[in-house]
Design a protein around this nucleic acid. Structure first.
Lengths: 222, 222
DNA sequence: TAGATTGTTAATCGATTAACAATC
DNA sequence: TAGATTGTTAATCGATTAACAATC
């Protein structure tokens, strides 16, 4: 598990800017569409213009991780998809737990997009006696007390938090204590996490606030 | 594309980095928690440490928009909340439409967090005859054909897209044609938008991919 | 006053872009 | 070959941090 210096699997661990990794996901999504549309190859400029990035940026981003392109040809779509999935770690299956089975939790349980990228929600947790014991979208709703057991038995590394803001930190603490190493938090609150646990926060109201700002501060000329 | 020095633009329109605006939303959220906890004032270093930013960054971000602090004192919480809401444009009410009433659409219709920041979903749209005519969370589900009328009559500027990827672009086009100027897109596809329309994309699978990368590329040694 | 904290400038750091030899 | 396109270096651009006079 821990890195040993002279393993020649992953020799280089240059730190990659977070922005690069998030573009990687966009490249992957775009490539999957391109393949579906029959494009066997693509170029950095095609990929860039589909996403609004420069060709140089696409090449630079990919070059962080290896030589995936073919000068004069471009990138073979299927090949690059495999490479990016391997880089992102989505070339394997990720069991995921979700805590909270309110409106949002149920929507996440029914979301089809997860499975296509290798994510599988294996259990949902709640404390509401009316919900515990039920099944939503084929997933059992268990009591939060069973969280640790389930996480440990399934070696689960990823968790989704879809509880009210007031309880999100407690839930987060329990996920981390159980061994989860990455959390997507949908509660509108800042979580405090120990080092070694990654966080992605999705605050739905904030997304709209960002648009509000853009609309209000639109430069009508530009 | 080339800069013309003295075009008669809006007097104060220094372009603010997108990252600054997104931190503004985080400051606002944090300030609202601080006020609830009885903190009448706060400092750039307190606000920063709660969010993992430097004090200098907090001050610099706020200074883009004015002088909101008091040397020796810090920032009066309520005062700064008002200022940020005014900057973000959430000091007013924003009527919003949503297209798509599947799992995710219904969750968004029931999401309580919007109203606290001034966002109010006034209508939902779908094309499924089984859904059109129903009411979800007190909001009427109308046929997509009525979108333009509703948007124009209510002067709606913001829209949420919660339809499958295959139809998201068409829905987007119709929102824009109707007059919407900002879109949150939950479909896992890149939308093509005309200039003057802002976009925030939320791809749930991508959020998990980002965590997958972090977990796989964790430098165990630090 | 002394201590605290802002707003702002200059210095540092990091990320994007332009350019081009190497390659197919 | 000629045209296309990569990977990479150097140049540019932008964002963050450090430092400090001004202020309460």
């Amino acid at each position: 598990m821990s890195a040993s210096p002279d393993k020649n699997e992953e020799p280089v661990d240059l730190q990659v800017p977070k922005a690069v990794v998030s573009r990687l996901s966009l490249y992957l999504r775009e490539l999957q569409h391109l393949v579906r549309d029959g494009h066997e190859t693509t170029s950095s400029s095609q990929l860039g213009s589909l996403l609004g990035f420069s060709d140089a940026q696409v090449r630079k981003d990919l070059a962080y991780f290896g030589h995936f392109g073919h000068p004069g040809i471009g990138y073979r779509s299927a090949e690059l998809i495999s490479a990016i999935r391997r880089i992102l770690g989505t070339d394997r299956d990720w069991p995921v737990v979700i805590v909270g089975t309110g409106n949002l939790g149920r929507a996440l349980l029914g979301y089809k997009g997860f499975s296509h990228q290798g994510f599988r929600i294996v259990a949902a947790f709640d404390v509401d006696p009316a919900k515990v014991g039920t099944t939503i979208e084929g997933v059992s709703v268990l009591h939060l007390n069973e969280l640790t057991d389930v996480v440990q038995q399934n070696q689960i590394k990823l968790g989704l938090i879809a509880v009210p803001a007031a309880t999100a930190q407690i839930v987060s603490d329990r996920l981390v204590a159980a061994g989860v190493e990455g959390i997507v938090n949908f509660a509108p609150v800042t979580l405090v996490l120990p080092p070694g646990v990654s966080l992605v926060g999705v605050d739905l109201a904030i997304e709209l606030e960002q648009l509000s700002f853009s609309v209000v501060n639109r430069t009508t000329g530009g």
